[in-house]
Design a protein around this nucleic acid. Sequence first.
DNA 1: GCCAACGTTGGC
DNA 2: GCCAACGTTGGC
Length: 158
Amino acid sequence: MAYWLFKSEPDCFSYADLAANPDRTTGWDGVRNYQARNMIRDEIKVGDGVLYYHSNAAPPAIVGIAEVVREGHPDPTAFHPDADHFDPKSREDDPTWYQVSIRAVRAIEPHLTLPSLRAIPGLASMELLRKGSRLSIQPVSTVEWETIMSLAQFCNRS
DNA sequence: GCCAACGTTGGC
DNA sequence: GCCAACGTTGGC
């Protein structure tokens, strides 16, 4: 059992979008960074916990919890010339890019905003809070996860 | 819109 | 393998 943080721009695909999907589930496609790809392909397992983070938001924040429901498998959007993230280098018989599938578990309300997270001493070394941190998939330690769970309030229905 | 930080590309 | 140029990310 491991924990992760997934970034998404809410204008592109928000936590509410995830929760509105059939079975509250989506394939996390479009990751085109090798470090993130390696985690998706090799490390992220079914049952792992996911912090859902809204980047490029005002304010940026952790807004929900999700869980991994399918481990790494080839990202189909890389194969389709019409898709946003088409990559001709990724072939079906030798895929470059992978995705996992995640399911929305609970929305966090109020959101855990970036400034509020920076104020928590126990989270000082969190990857998300590092200056210049850009990875869209990040490992989260058990201690960080438990600290965040202790801060989070969850909607009754979410 | 600005800009710092980072990843990728490509010439050498 | 080095590194400058360039593109992207993402907070502010």
